[in-house]
C-alpha cells in the first residue's frame, strides 16, 4: 500500500525548474532513500511534499488523498513530518520543550516521550539542557525525536548526516530500522551513498531534477548507482529492467 505517491511533479523557484516530471511511490513501512548531488532537486522535492513550496504541476497523493494544494500545516497534521536540513532546533527552549513542540499536532500513536527516550537514550540524558548548547549530533538526535513526537505516518529526513562526526551518524542510522519497524515510512535524503545503501529498502537517484534511477539496492550495482549519481551513462538506465526513468 502506497503512503505517498508523486505523479509527474514539476516544481522550482520562479522560472527555474528544480524537479521535472518526477514520479515515484513510497510504500508503508518502507525506507525510501533519495540520493543525488548538490542541486539535484532533493530539497525542492521535500519542500513540495511538506507544502512549504507550491508545485508548478503534477500531483502529490498522501494516504489516498490529493494534498497537492493543501496548506502546509494541514499536511503535518495529516501525518507528514520533516526533519529539516541543519536541524533547526528551538535554541532558547530546553530539549524536553523541543520535544513537546513536536507533539503540537496532537496526533495519537506509538511515539511519546518514553518511547523517544528508549529509542534515543542520549535525548533522555539531555532533556534538561538548552537545545542551543548541544553538539551537532545531539541536536540531530533531538530533531528526529521532535519529529517523531508528531506521530507521523511519513517522516522526511533531510541530510541528517551533514556536518556530523561519523560515530554520531552511525548511532543515528542505527535507530532508523527501529523507526521503520513501527510501521512508519521514511524518505531519507542523503549524499552519503555507502551508508544509505546499507539501510534503504529502495533507492532513487535524482540528477538535475530528473529521476534517473530507482530500485532495490540489492538489484542495483554500485557502478549503476554512482554513474546515476554523477550523471555518467544516463542513457543506459533508461531501458533498465528495474523501472528506472531517463
Amino acid at each position: 500500500m502506497s503512503v505517498l505517491e508523486i505523479k509527474n511533479l514539476r516544481a522550482g523557484y520562479g522560472d527555474l525548474v528544480a524537479v521535472s516530471d518526477l514520479s515515484f511511490a513510497v510504500q508503508q513501512g518502507e525506507l525510501f532513500a533519495l540520493v543525488g548531488a548538490n542541486g539535484a532537486g532533493k530539497s525542492t522535492l521535500l519542500k513540495s511534499i511538506v507544502g512549504s513550496m507550491s508545485v508548478k504541476s503534477g500531483t502529490i497523493i498522501f494516504k489516498d488523498d490529493d494534498i497537492t494544494t493543501v496548506a502546509d500545516y494541514k499536511r503535518i497534521q495529516a501525518g507528514i513530518s520533516l526533519v529539516p536540513e541543519g536541524r533547526r532546533l528551538f535554541t532558547s527552549l530546553s530539549v524536553e520543550e523541543n520535544l513537546l513542540v513536536g507533539a503540537a499536532t496532537g496526533r495519537k500513536g506509538p511515539w511519546n516521550l518514553k518511547s523517544i527516550f528508549e529509542l534515543l537514550p542520549i535525548v533522555e540524558k539531555l532533556k534538561d539542557r538548552n537545545a542551543g548548547r548541544l553538539s551537532g549530533g545531539e541536536q540531530q538526535a533531538v530533531a528526529i525525536g521532535r519529529s517523531l513526537m508528531s506521530n507521523p505516518d511519513l517522516i522526511l529526513l533531510d541530510e541528517i548526516s551533514l556536518g556530523l562526526a561519523p560515530i554520531v551518524v552511525e548511532q543515528i542510522y542505527a535507530a532508523l530500522p527501529d523507526i521503520r519497524n513501527e510501521g512508519l515510512s521514511i524518505i531519507l535524503v542523503e549524499q552519503d551513498l555507502s551508508r544509505t545503501l546499507k539501510v534503504a529498502d529502495k533507492i532513487a537517484c535524482l540528477l538535475e531534477g530528473h529521476l534517473v534511477l530507482e530500485g532495490r539496492p540489492s538489484d542495483l550495482t554500485h557502478q549503476q548507482i554512482t554513474d546515476a549519481y554523477f550523471g555518467h551513462s544516463i542513457a543506459s538506465f533508461g531501458t533498465s529492467s528495474n523501472g528506472a526513468n531517463s
Partner: peptide, 23 residues
C-alpha cells in the same frame, strides 16, 4: 500550549512550520 508554539516560532519559523504550527 500556545505559548510553547509562540516561542518555537520566535526561535525558528521554518522549523515551527514543519511541525504543523500555524505560524
Amino acid at each position: 500550549r500556545f505559548g510553547l508554539a509562540l516561542q518555537s516560532i520566535r526561535d525558528n519559523e521554518v522549523a515551527a512550520n514543519s511541525l504543523g504550527i500555524k505560524v
